[in-house]
């Protein structure tokens, strides 16, 4: 509850100061700003760990992440009543740089997970609204998951695979269309993780039907092998060797007699 109170407090301050100065926000005390930042960091960290598997980092923690962004913004822009910038009191003082390090770590985690891709970006600022692509993907996913669930309850795997395959393919194709296959993380990590899980379970249950008897393939490879062996053995048998004769050289008589005697 205390955290909540602080947030409100900061909000109020922010509004007041916004009127006074566009760039710098005045506070009585920089400690409050610092505390707010600390709380938002710990909030986010907790949330991230709670949603680490299956990964729901982006959708669950987006608000907390936005909090961090704004409170760090506050910290860098505020001045206390003495007129010194809060930034100077906490940041850039020592080598450890705890505040900055924590902030950078959080941002790295968020960016590595490509969470921005899940949400609508408003002029470069993150909003907590999921993007259209995300909504469409979740919609398709829900359909597929429902299908698999209901079919598995009623029938066996084979029938489930046949019945749900069009939904699954639709989902799969949509996923491929919105993601970049050559990147290490193709899309927003929530979506990637959900899709990976779906694909794995689907492949386990349905992919053995990919295998077919490939007689034509095997026979034709054998044919190529036989042709190769035939080529070399036939050329060896049919073509006769041709040996050449060394041509003689004229030399000084004495030296040759000499060497021949040796």
């Amino acid at each position: 509850m205390k955290i909540k109170g602080n947030e409100i407090e900061i909000d109020i301050f922010a509004r007041i100061s916004g009127i006074q100065n566009d760039n710098l926000v005045n506070y009585d005390n920089c400690t409050m700003v610092k505390d707010a930042f600390g709380f938002s960091i710990s909030n986010f960290t907790h949330c991230a760990i709670m949603n680490s598997h299956p990964i729901k980092l982006c959708q669950e923690c987006v608000n907390k992440y936005i909090d961090i962004l704004s409170s760090f913004q506050n910290l860098t822009k505020s001045i206390d009543k003495n007129g010194t910038a809060c930034y100077d009191q906490y940041i850039g003082l020592d080598r450890l740089e705890i505040i900055e390090t924590m902030y950078i770590d959080v941002r790295n985690l968020w960016n590595t997970a490509k969470c921005d891709a899940c949400f609508i970006m408003d002029n470069g600022t993150l909003t907590p609204e999921p993007s259209n692509k995300t909504l469409k993907f979740y919609e398709l996913y829900e359909k597929t998951a429902l299908c698999i669930k209901t079919e598995l309850k009623q029938n066996n795997t084979k029938i489930m695979c046949d019945k749900c395959i069009h939904l699954y393919i639709e989902l799969n194709d949509y996923y491929d269309s919105i993601s970049n296959i050559n990147a290490e993380i193709a899309n927003c990590m929530d979506i990637v993780d959900l899709m990976n899980g779906t694909r794995t379970s689907w492949s386990k249950q349905c992919c053995r039907y990919r295998h077919h008897e490939e007689y034509v393939f095997i026979i034709s490879t054998c044919l190529v092998l036989v042709i190769t062996v035939l080529f070399y053995s036939l050329t060896k048998l049919l073509i006769d060797k041709k040996s050449s004769v060394a041509i003689s050289q004229t030399r000084f008589a004495e030296s040759l007699n000499h060497t021949r005697k040796d």
Binding site: A246, S248, Q249, T250, A253, E254, L256
Partner: peptide, 28 residues
């Protein structure tokens, strides 16, 4: 030329020259 090796007897003078090799086949 190769079949008839143009050699001279051992008393040949320093100034004559001769074919150095007997017929030698070379395996490819």
């Amino acid at each position: 030329d190769l079949n008839s090796i143009v050699t001279h007897e051992d008393d040949s003078s320093l100034l004559t020259s001769l074919r150095s090799r007997h017929k030698q086949t070379i395996e490819p």
